[in-house]
Amino acid sequence: MKKQSIEHTQLLVLSLLASRDIYGYEMIVELARRSQNVFEMKEGTLYPVLHAMEKAGTVAAYEQTAPTGRTRKYYRLTQKGRGCLADEKAAWARYADAVNAVLRTEALS
């Protein structure tokens, strides 16, 4: 099976940030791990998405210097982002249900 290029990146990012604050590279790693490498993207294209979310106010960013001396830009879910995640999640569930419903009827007929 051909690896799927990522869609609904915003929903995935929001859901990754729901549990803790993470930085860009960590997101890529987490996405690959949680989707068993189904989701794969050109890693650089994650950043325009993150910056757009920052501008929209669903996430906020801060820079933190690790003990190793490396500075990383962490993203944090805002109050607005939490609301957005709940909405998008519900919308996605409706969509997935609808697709599944269609697929089921096809199998029956």
Binding site: E54, A60, E63, Q64, T65, A66
Partner: peptide, 12 residues
């Protein structure tokens, strides 16, 4: 203590 610096958008 780790050094944390909040980043703001242009608008903010």
């Amino acid at each position: 203590m780790r050094n944390v610096k909040r980043l703001y958008t242009r608008r903010a």
